[in-house]
Simulated assay, not measured.
Amino acid sequence: MTDFVSLPGIEQEELLWLQELTRDYSIETRQRFLAVYEGRRKDPQLILILCLVGLIGPAGIHRFLMNQVGMGVLYILTVGLCWIGTIVDAVNYRKLTWEYNKKAALQSAALLGL
């Protein structure tokens, strides 16, 4: 079950959740799940960096990366909701990333038919 430790920026909550999700998987199935999940998962540090880029450049890039196109367009048109939205996202980047990664894990499991 230590396969997940190699994921960049993984935190204890995500690690425990993934271990619980894959608890009944065989080693081979867990490795297939990990391969799919790694391709979909976003690193929290990358989301933070893109939020901070939004303070000096185009805001909302992090929202596009998390497949929130509508919010990304809104951030671009409103300069990150007058930077307030971008600052809030920079403070809450771990929560934003965790929510995205949780959905990505469930989609990965569904894709594999698990």
Rank of each mutant, 00 (worst) to 15 (best):
E14M: 13
E14C: 05
L15Q: 06
L15I: 05
W17R: 11
L18C: 06
Q19C: 12
E20S: 15
E20T: 14
E20G: 11
D24S: 14
Y25P: 02
Y25T: 04
S26A: 02
I27P: 12
I27D: 11
E28V: 07
T29P: 03
F33V: 02
L34C: 03
L34F: 13
A35E: 14
Y37C: 00
E38S: 15
G39D: 03
R40K: 12
R40N: 11
K42I: 05
I47S: 12
I47M: 15
I47A: 10
L48G: 06
L48P: 08
L48M: 12
L48N: 04
L50T: 15
C51I: 09
L52G: 01
G54L: 10
L55S: 04
G57A: 15
G57P: 02
A59H: 05
A59Y: 01
A59C: 10
A59V: 01
A59N: 07
I61T: 09
H62Y: 04
L65T: 11
L65C: 10
N67C: 13
Q68N: 13
V69S: 11
G70T: 08
G70E: 06
M71W: 13
M71P: 07
L74F: 15
V79Y: 12
G80C: 04
C82P: 02
I84W: 09
I84N: 05
I84A: 13
G85P: 05
T86V: 11
T86S: 06
